[in-house]
Protein backbone atom coordinates (compact mmCIF):
# COMPACT_ATOMS: atom_id res chain seq x y z
CA UNK A 1 0.00 0.00 0.00
CA UNK A 2 1.43 3.38 -1.02
CA UNK A 3 1.65 5.87 1.83
CA UNK A 4 2.66 9.51 1.76
CA UNK A 5 5.11 10.92 4.26
CA UNK A 6 6.93 14.11 5.00
CA UNK A 7 10.51 14.29 6.28
CA UNK A 8 9.75 16.53 9.21
CA UNK A 9 12.42 18.65 10.88
CA UNK A 10 12.32 17.80 14.58
CA UNK A 11 15.34 19.73 15.84
CA UNK A 12 18.21 21.69 14.39
CA UNK A 13 21.66 21.69 15.96
CA UNK A 14 25.09 23.27 15.52
CA UNK A 15 26.51 20.30 13.69
CA UNK A 16 23.60 17.94 13.13
CA UNK A 17 19.87 18.31 12.52
CA UNK A 18 17.22 15.73 13.30
CA UNK A 19 14.45 14.81 10.92
CA UNK A 20 11.86 12.04 11.08
CA UNK A 21 9.40 10.53 8.59
CA UNK A 22 5.85 11.61 9.40
CA UNK A 23 3.20 9.56 7.64
CA UNK A 24 0.14 11.37 6.31
CA UNK A 25 -2.85 11.07 8.62
CA UNK A 26 -0.80 10.24 11.71
CA UNK A 27 -0.41 12.53 14.71
CA UNK A 28 3.23 11.78 15.37
CA UNK A 29 6.38 11.21 13.39
CA UNK A 30 8.09 7.81 13.53
CA UNK A 31 10.64 8.93 16.12
CA UNK A 32 7.98 10.55 18.28
CA UNK A 33 6.02 7.28 18.16
CA UNK A 34 9.15 5.43 19.31
CA UNK A 35 9.65 7.85 22.23
CA UNK A 36 6.02 7.66 23.27
CA UNK A 37 6.02 3.85 23.08
CA UNK A 38 9.07 3.37 25.28
CA UNK A 39 9.52 6.45 27.51
CA UNK A 40 7.39 5.03 30.32
CA UNK A 41 8.42 1.37 30.01
CA UNK A 42 12.17 2.00 29.71
CA UNK A 43 12.56 5.58 30.94
CA UNK A 44 16.29 5.40 31.58
CA UNK A 45 17.09 3.99 28.15
CA UNK A 46 15.00 6.66 26.47
CA UNK A 47 16.60 9.43 28.56
CA UNK A 48 20.04 8.17 27.56
CA UNK A 49 19.04 7.98 23.93
CA UNK A 50 17.71 11.56 23.93
CA UNK A 51 20.85 12.84 25.68
CA UNK A 52 22.97 10.85 23.24
CA UNK A 53 21.25 12.72 20.41
CA UNK A 54 21.98 16.01 22.19
CA UNK A 55 25.67 15.10 22.31
CA UNK A 56 25.59 14.13 18.63
CA UNK A 57 23.86 17.40 17.69
CA UNK A 58 26.57 19.29 19.54
CA UNK A 59 29.65 17.28 18.52
CA UNK A 60 28.80 15.63 15.21
CA UNK A 61 27.45 12.37 13.83
CA UNK A 62 30.59 10.40 13.03
CA UNK A 63 29.97 6.78 12.02
CA UNK A 64 31.78 5.37 15.05
CA UNK A 65 29.01 6.59 17.32
CA UNK A 66 26.50 4.29 15.60
CA UNK A 67 26.03 0.65 14.79
CA UNK A 68 25.92 -0.24 11.12
CA UNK A 69 22.65 -1.87 10.19
CA UNK A 70 20.83 -2.40 6.93
CA UNK A 71 22.85 -3.22 3.83
CA UNK A 72 26.21 -2.01 2.54
CA UNK A 73 24.57 0.22 -0.06
CA UNK A 74 22.24 2.09 2.32
CA UNK A 75 22.75 4.65 5.07
CA UNK A 76 20.78 2.83 7.75
CA UNK A 77 22.38 2.88 11.19
CA UNK A 78 21.25 2.21 14.72
CA UNK A 79 21.66 3.78 18.12
CA UNK A 80 21.88 1.28 20.94
CA UNK A 81 20.97 2.24 24.44
CA UNK A 82 23.88 3.11 26.63
CA UNK A 83 24.09 1.65 30.06
CA UNK A 84 20.93 -0.25 30.75
CA UNK A 85 20.43 -3.95 30.20
CA UNK A 86 17.68 -3.66 27.59
CA UNK A 87 18.42 -3.88 23.89
CA UNK A 88 16.39 -0.93 22.75
CA UNK A 89 17.34 0.00 19.20
CA UNK A 90 16.54 3.15 17.25
CA UNK A 91 17.04 2.96 13.49
CA UNK A 92 18.02 6.00 11.49
CA UNK A 93 19.56 7.28 8.28
CA UNK A 94 22.85 9.12 8.64
CA UNK A 95 23.16 11.65 5.80
CA UNK A 96 26.72 12.93 5.45
CA UNK A 97 27.13 12.99 9.28
CA UNK A 98 25.11 16.25 9.22
CA UNK A 99 21.51 15.06 9.13
CA UNK A 100 19.93 12.19 10.99
CA UNK A 101 16.57 10.92 9.80
CA UNK A 102 15.26 9.19 12.92
CA UNK A 103 12.94 6.30 12.28
CA UNK A 104 11.28 3.90 14.66
CA UNK A 105 12.67 0.92 16.54
CA UNK A 106 12.16 -1.32 19.50
CA UNK A 107 13.62 -4.04 21.64
CA UNK A 108 16.00 -6.30 19.74
CA UNK A 109 15.54 -9.79 21.13
CA UNK A 110 16.65 -11.68 18.02
CA UNK A 111 20.13 -12.09 16.54
CA UNK A 112 19.25 -10.03 13.49
CA UNK A 113 16.58 -7.40 12.90
CA UNK A 114 15.30 -9.40 9.94
CA UNK A 115 14.02 -12.04 12.37
CA UNK A 116 11.77 -9.51 14.09
CA UNK A 117 8.79 -8.36 12.05
CA UNK A 118 8.52 -4.93 13.68
CA UNK A 119 12.23 -4.10 13.56
CA UNK A 120 12.47 -5.41 10.01
CA UNK A 121 9.66 -3.10 8.96
CA UNK A 122 11.35 -0.14 10.69
CA UNK A 123 14.56 -0.78 8.75
CA UNK A 124 12.78 -1.42 5.45
CA UNK A 125 10.86 1.87 5.75
CA UNK A 126 14.13 3.74 6.10
CA UNK A 127 15.72 1.80 3.25
CA UNK A 128 12.83 2.72 0.95
CA UNK A 129 13.14 6.37 1.93
CA UNK A 130 16.92 6.20 1.41
CA UNK A 131 16.53 4.88 -2.13
CA UNK A 132 14.22 7.75 -3.11
CA UNK A 133 16.30 10.30 -1.22
CA UNK A 134 19.44 9.29 -3.10
CA UNK A 135 17.59 9.55 -6.43
CA UNK A 136 16.35 13.03 -5.57
CA UNK A 137 19.81 14.12 -4.43
CA UNK A 138 21.19 12.91 -7.75
CA UNK A 139 18.47 14.81 -9.63
CA UNK A 140 19.00 17.88 -7.39
CA UNK A 141 15.34 17.78 -6.38
CA UNK A 142 16.66 17.59 -2.82
CA UNK A 143 19.94 19.15 -1.72
CA UNK A 144 21.85 18.92 1.54
CA UNK A 145 22.86 22.41 2.61
CA UNK A 146 24.87 22.28 5.81
CA UNK A 147 22.54 20.63 8.28
CA UNK A 148 19.40 21.26 6.24
CA UNK A 149 17.51 19.23 3.68
CA UNK A 150 16.20 21.55 0.97
CA UNK A 151 13.67 20.70 -1.68
CA UNK A 152 10.70 18.37 -1.96
CA UNK A 153 10.55 16.47 1.32
CA UNK A 154 7.30 14.59 0.70
CA UNK A 155 7.62 10.99 -0.39
CA UNK A 156 5.38 8.13 -1.32
CA UNK A 157 6.54 4.66 -0.33
CA UNK A 158 5.11 1.19 -0.47
CA UNK A 159 4.80 0.48 3.24
CA UNK A 160 4.05 -3.22 2.90
CA UNK A 161 6.84 -5.48 4.29
Amino acid sequence: MERNLLLELLEDGNKVSLYSPHFEGETYSEFEKFLLAYKDIYPNDVRQLVYRLDIIKRDGAEDRHFRYEGKMRDRVMALPSHLETTSLRLYLLNINAKILILGNGGLKTTSTYQEDAHLNRCVQTLQKIDIQLKQREKQRIITVSGTKLLGTLTFSIDDEP
Binding site: L10, E11, D12, E32, L36, K39, P43, N44, L53, D54
Partner: peptide
Protein backbone atom coordinates in the same frame (compact mmCIF):
# COMPACT_ATOMS: atom_id res chain seq x y z
CA UNK B 1 14.03 24.44 16.92
CA UNK B 2 13.44 21.68 19.45
CA UNK B 3 10.88 18.92 19.70
CA UNK B 4 8.25 19.06 22.46
CA UNK B 5 8.38 15.35 23.36
CA UNK B 6 12.19 15.37 23.46
CA UNK B 7 12.10 18.50 25.63
CA UNK B 8 9.79 16.79 28.13
CA UNK B 9 12.18 13.83 28.33
CA UNK B 10 15.17 16.17 28.68
CA UNK B 11 13.54 17.68 31.75
CA UNK B 12 13.72 14.25 33.47
CA UNK B 13 17.40 13.47 32.80
CA UNK B 14 19.33 13.54 36.09
CA UNK B 15 22.58 15.60 36.11
CA UNK B 16 24.59 12.54 37.20
CA UNK B 17 23.41 10.60 34.15
Amino acid sequence: KTNKIMDEIRGTIPPAL
